[in-house]
Amino acid sequence: MMRKVLVFLALIGFAFALLPLAYRAGVADEPNALATAYLERAPAELATANVVTAIVVSYRGFDTLGEVAVLFAATAGVGALLTKKRLGSAGARAPRKEATEVLGTAARLLTSLLALFGVYIFTHGHLTPGGGFQGGVVIATAVLLNILARPQSHLAHGLMTAVESLSGAAYVALGLLGAFLAWGFLDPRALPLGELGKLVSAGAIPLIYSVVGLKVGAELSGILEALKGDRE
């Protein structure tokens, strides 16, 4: 009871701190100077139609690199926690029911379609909504479907690891390319900017978003795989 009262008081206190802030800030009428600067400069400087992508991959690309690192660290943690050995017998599954033939066939078909869709999303991140993270999730969904359709099949774990590692390394390498060929680490202007609105444009942004997509896809698949309990 005492506890409930304290929880109630804590929440009231928190609300007391939070709500006035949300109210006082109100709704903005205009984007501020920084936002306007991004909106005006991103298409010109980086030939990127999607300003959010320009910010995420370039101006604040260091954040995104960190974000990839967060996901990477989490995957490593999940992988280390959920190994067969550590989960005891809960990891060693009895043979599961085989999925039906129909589902299997549908999954095979859908998997490649989904993967293709994922690739589309992250290669078009500079033009349309979406990008590496969204595309990565779609790829992971494809993997998930595969897992569901064929519970007994083990993912090509080595392949996943290789994709994850190499795409990560490629991200860092692209960043360094910016440092050597352009004006700084993660500068996408290392490659020709091209024309605004074209697929091959915006310098290294599509490339960066592609490796991010691959890495994220591999990592999320890794998390799903670990949760499934297949990690040695």
């Binding site: 260091f62 680490f185 996408p188």
Partner: peptide, 12 residues
């Protein structure tokens, strides 16, 4: 040190 070839406030 700026990142991505830009300076504050645009970049980190």
């Amino acid at each position: 040190f700026g990142t991505a070839g830009f300076e504050a406030p645009l970049a980190i």
